[in-house]
């Protein structure tokens, strides 16, 4: 319980800093709009085929723009040795990681909400047909991205080549999550019922979240404490 409260205070601190500076959120939103614009040149926005691959495009946008958010989560703590101060405080490494992931999660959901609206307008996509299920998919997939983003943000924070290493490491590991999210989102955009086969993807998202959250908490000390 105490660890959760500690995690919440870290998340609140990160969100307050982000709301005041808006440094990563503005960049991530701008980047997602740029990507949506670039897609309109790669594919004909009016063609049916674009709407068929809309779910895939959207999750690529979420994952790539999300990188701008989780990349900053730990880098923000480097000036003035704030990370060392946080690690020497009574807050456990697991709570620190969980708090960072929670802050990334909230920002990622906000980014997704904005991107969905922009995508709907630009590509004439009816994304609101199954709002509750879509929200559930976004929550499950975003948590997976957030916890891995926090883990690999922490893992690469002290590296010279962190901006290069982070995407190389994280995207192959996110593949099962992205496949599941794309499959489910595609069905929801088409407003088709979820078959038992597709519910497997939902289960995969849950398993992904549980496995990597458990691993992140177990390995937090090894990742963060030098």
């Amino acid at each position: 319980m105490r660890s959760l409260l500690q995690a919440l205070s870290i998340a609140r601190k990160d969100l307050t800093v982000e709301l005041r500076t808006k440094e990563s959120l503005n960049a991530a939103i701008a980047f997602s709009v740029v990507m949506l614009l670039l897609f309109s040149f790669a594919f004909d926005p009016a063609a049916d085929v674009t709407r068929e691959i809309a779910a895939g495009l959207l999750w690529i946008v979420f994952a790539f723009s999300g990188a701008l958010i989780f990349n900053r989560a730990f880098v923000r703590e480097l000036p003035n040795d704030c990370l060392d101060v946080l690690l020497s405080s009574p807050i456990s490494p697991a709570s620190l990681l969980l708090g960072k992931a929670a802050a990334i999660f909230v920002l990622l959901l906000f980014l997704e909400a904005i991107s969905l609206v922009v995508f709907g307008v630009f590509y004439n996509l009816r994304w609101w047909l199954r709002p509750i299920e879509l929200a559930l998919v976004c929550i499950l997939a975003s948590w997976g991205i957030s916890i891995l983003g926090a883990v690999f943000g922490a893992l690469t924070v002290n590296l010279r080549l962190r901006e290069l290493m982070l995407p190389v490491i994280i995207y192959p590991i996110l593949i099962p999550l992205l496949i599941a999210a794309v499959e489910l989102t595609d069905t929801l955009f088409r407003n088709q019922p979820l078959s038992p086969d597709q519910l497997l993807w939902g289960r995969l998202l849950v398993v992904f979240d549980v496995v990597f959250t458990a691993l992140a908490l177990a390995l937090a000390e090894a990742i963060l404490v030098n």
């Binding site: 883990v151 593949i175 099962p176 496949i179 993807w201 992904f208 691993l215 090894a222």
Partner: peptide, 24 residues
Amino acid sequence: RLSAALSIFGFADVILVWKSIQWF
């Protein structure tokens, strides 16, 4: 330390990758 942590995350993911792409 960091590569050991990555290896553990990587192997957990390998299992999920094989299962998910098999369904795909």
